[in-house]
Design a protein around this nucleic acid. Structure first.
Lengths: 362, 362
DNA sequence: CCGTGGTTGGATAGCGCTTTCCTCACGATA
DNA sequence: TATCGTGAGGAAAGCGCTATCCAACCACGG
């Protein structure tokens, strides 16, 4: 009981690939079975700068395979001082905006042999910092925070602090859509995209705009609104202040806000919902109220969520390369850093569809 | 250079909460700072069966907070022999079916202090076993495989083997939608749901059915088809064999299959797409071809993906409590097991909407 | 006043792996 | 043939934490 724990099958041929009970086959077992030292076994099995003589190398690998050896992750992480975990923090993984981006991150990470852990904030920005802190404890090697971008300074400061601590501890961090922190950041050009959308809409003859604007404190929503306003003005149209309603950044938020808009007497014009999910909710509300869509009221969204492309009428929106954003975030993470924090800007592309007909040509 | 690494601030007051460089503050530092042994510090900070005298307890906690101590996850995992990781394996996290379920899993896991890692197979069933193996190496304490359910026996056997090895190594496993393996399983009653759907449709006067059936080897799709067939027959309708087309389990798969169906001369009847995403693709195809929907061709889907509820005409489908399934999977994982593998069955609920009008009443 | 449980700190042995060092063998150069 | 440089295996020192075992120490009862 005091010696080397359960001894592996000592005889000539060990039971092959039979996952015995509590799989205690360690590197030592492999080393012993192949008659080399622990160090050599480690070098052969898990790679190292040092080379191992070919015959020994093969012998060790054979033994490992035959014993069904699997490296103990935590032990490796401990010895190396770092795991190969990439922590992804999002608001809600069920939201297609985040899940599409997550798919990109997962894809990039798996290619590079990283494991992705996912943390959700349930749209509470304060939880972002908590997750980053936890990730630091886990010795994650990287973290991607798809930011909520609030205007709550204390919350932002806390996040900045945690991210700094994370990086100080040797990890790499990338924020998506948050430009105000001194960290590598992937900025989605919401304002520019919204402006371009508004211009395109005015070119189609739309002039009077209402906006379903999302939560007041959410910078993403705010940027989109600001850009849209600017674009509308530039194109000769205008966003009517009384017709800017706030609501949740969700389908139901858009649905409710649209109802309120209709209640307020709005019955003609173009509505921007600051994301596609809200736009879909808004369209549902319009149908429920029997409003002619897109005849009387036109609707535009933002994001170009792929599963939402097939609504009727097809939704005008700004396409964001969500999956690509996820992949780029991983690239950014793994690239060697030159100097200070880098910023990568991603633009959206206006996609005009049937939900905002061309009024000029009919 | 040969002694105890970077020594912590020795003076009276250490710099508070300043995340110094590579955050090397360990439990030993905390113990030293609070003048107790490592063992006591461990007991105070990270809990244990053993009690610590209140004043010491407080002292240790204070020191930990002041030093900004965060437990080293891998080290804990190593000492305990197990991590607090729950591995989730899905096909594609961007697919709302999986991301909704993932949201449930994440929710359940976070409540219980588990970290969720996510692995994707890209719809390659063979990768499931690989992920489970990797998770075993990571000493994950639990794994949820949202199964693809192929009919490839070798692949299934491999998965069964890996899951067995995983459980043998002390972890807990739950499969979603896979009944054939000796593991705790959450079975989605696809066949029953499809049958109920078909019956409901025949009651509405539909008689002639085509099916967009997904990949041939996919048991989920096959079960839905079988159930639908049975239900149609029972209700006095029939699934026309020539009108059962296979295609990818995706929007584009449904889109392409619908086009083929139309090419084959189908222009009247009811189409079942074996999931909502395919149904949406099919509806897009129908619109492209100018087919009267739902007048000439009615469409039904399966899953009731929430973001797809607002298509026009609203989609008849079978509602699956996806998020709840995820949460239940976590429950199942953590429940103490009684005897052998348990099976939990989840039923779908038919939701009739405008895409399949009632032919009897007009 | 001493024996006897019951507590609670402390010392310490690992957990499985990576990674210095150290050593040895071999071939090349003088 | 003697010396040095190089390449590769092996011994062993941790990585930071948990958990086991011991030793104090307390409050009792006899």
């Amino acid at each position: 009981m005091t010696d080397t724990r359960s001894t592996p099958p000592a005889g000539g041929d060990a039971p092959a690939a039979t996952p015995d009970r509590r799989s205690p086959v360690t590197l030592s077992d492999v080393a012993r079975a192949s008659g080399v030292s622990l160090a050599t076994a480690s070098r052969a099995v898990n790679g190292s700068a040092r080379k191992v003589r070919p015959d020994l190398h093969a012998r060790v690998l054979a033994a490992a395979a035959q014993l069904g050896y699997t490296a103990n992750g935590p032990a490796q992480a401990m010895a190396r001082g770092r795991t190969s975990v990439l922590g992804l923090v999002v608001q809600d993984i069920a939201d297609p905006y985040f899940s599409t981006m997550a798919a990109g991150v997962v894809r990039g990470a798996e290619q590079r042999g990283l494991v992705v852990t996912i943390g959700t904030t349930g749209r509470d920005p304060a939880k972002e910092a908590q997750h980053v802190a936890a990730l630091r404890g886990q010795r994650a090697s990287a973290v991607v925070v798809v930011g909520s971008r609030t205007d709550d300074a204390a919350v932002q400061a806390r996040l900045a602090e945690e991210v700094a601590a994370f990086e100080a501890s040797g990890g790499r961090a990338v924020l998506v859509s948050q430009e105000s922190l001194p960290v590598d950041t992937l900025v989605v050009e919401n304002e520019q995209g919204a402006e371009a959308l508004a211009r395109a809409l005015t070119e189609r003859g739309h002039e009077r705009f209402a906006v379903l604007a999302g939560p007041p404190g959410l910078l993403t929503a705010r940027d989109r609104l600001a850009g849209f306003r600017a674009g509308a003005a530039a194109g000769g149209g205008r966003v009517v202040d009384d017709l800017v309603l706030h609501g949740d950044f969700t389908r139901d938020g858009g649905h409710a806000a649209m109802h309120r808009l209709l209640d307020a007497g709005f019955d003609r014009g173009c509505v921007l919902a600051v994301n596609d999910v809200m736009a879909v909710g808004a369209m549902a509300a319009l149908r429920e109220r029997g409003v002619d869509l897109p005849g009387a009221v036109a609707v535009a969204g933002f994001d170009d969520i792929s599963t939402l492309r097939d609504v009727t009428p097809a939704l005008t929106t700004v396409r964001l390369p969500l999956q690509e954003i996820g992949e780029r975030a991983v690239e950014l993470l793994l690239d060697e850093e030159g100097g200070g924090p880098r910023t990568v800007r991603v633009r959206g592309e206006v996609v005009l569809r049937a939900s905002t007909p061309d009024l000029r040509r009919g």
